[in-house]
Design a protein around this nucleic acid. Structure first.
Lengths: 189, 189
DNA sequence: AGAGTTTGTCAACAGTTGTTGACTTACAAA
DNA sequence: TTTGTAAGTCAACAACTGTTGACAAACTCT
């Protein structure tokens, strides 16, 4: 058998490759800690050579920076009816934050807390793209405090979910109370 | 200078070295994800050769198992006045869970969520040594749900703290509300 | 068509990882 | 003192990490 030349999935397109890397990296960083994500894994998931990551983004740290600062519609995560925010957020927790993007930044921030370098980067992005818009959406005097609290409860729910993955009545009951408490924070009660 | 034979800190004492390894590993696993903790780091912190870890505990995974299942007084963490539980827990969150041991298990569970192998191990230990005793301490019908919720809020607070390490008024206000909500869960309101 | 630039490929680097096995030292029983 | 075993040391292993630079292929302009 002669070595047939590999037919490329994507035609030569730097923008598309860059985007593919970015998307794959986003998924990886959302499900594993920063240091645990290998550039080869990201490259494989993007269908791309590992060296291209260095070419397009510089270092792995720079890639992480690009990922957390590329959130097209992060502020749309909590958009919608104020009265149903608690329930909607709890459902996001229940679904373990599927592939739909806006809440993905929260998972990335959650995973990167252990790494000094990554948490420094994601902290600022989190502040700019999540906390501040959320606080503005909430409104009121202690909006900043309530935004922090909402995120804390959300992340706590996510971690608790990850630690008890079964779908039983206890889990559902906890999510209901979580929704209730988050709604109270939104309402400013 | 002649190479003076290294004078050992500890006399030959397998029990003591085992304990030293266990303690060092506990600290490491509480501050870094499972895969990120190196056996050489643990050994260095314990003042011990890395090969001894393999000898005494088998694999790194076995060491982790030994760590999370060796919690002498885990259930004393929430012992004390029921009426002040919320405030005491919030103070633990504020102090970023210092070296005092009982809450350390929570940090370990928090860090290990990303690793499939480690989270499986810590999940069961968490259940046996934290959730169930806490639920029993709480009492009442939905004790299990409230225990899960308390742990979720606690961990959420810890993560939120890690993401905004400054000690400012916003932080304190958030911890106050956290204490308030946790106390409500304890009181069963 | 030819030159020049962009895009992708490949192999190698130095460093780290968990784990193993052979080795020397220290201690206790005889 | 000799002997047997427990405790500790050391070097090496294969596999993996992020990053680099040389190279080949494909596209764009003249």
């Amino acid at each position: 058998m002669t070595a047939e030349p590999v037919e490329r999935l994507r035609k030569r397109d730097s923008a598309a490759t860059r985007a593919a890397i970015l998307q794959a990296a986003r998924r990886r960083f959302a499900s594993e800690p920063f240091e645990q994500v290998g550039v080869r894994d990201v490259a494989a998931e993007a269908g791309v050579d590992a060296a291209l990551i260095a070419r397009y983004f510089g270092s792995k740290e720079d890639l992480f920076h690009a990922v957390v600062n590329d959130c097209p519609q992060a502020s749309e995560a909590w958009a919608g009816d104020r009265a149903t925010f608690g329930r909607r957020a709890a459902e996001k927790v229940a679904s373990k934050g599927g592939p739909d993007g806006a809440f993905e930044g929260i998972f990335i921030a959650l995973r990167s807390t252990a790494s000094p370098r990554a948490s420094e980067i994601s902290r600022e992005a989190m502040k700019r793209h999540m906390l501040e818009p959320l606080a503005q959406w909430l409104g009121g005097d202690d909006a900043e405090v309530r935004a922090r609290l909402l995120l804390a409860y959300f992340m706590g729910g996510v971690v608790s979910r990850a630690m008890a993955p079964e779908d039983n009545a206890t889990n559902q009951a906890m999510l209901d109370r979580l929704a209730e408490d988050m709604q109270r924070v939104v309402d400013g009660r």
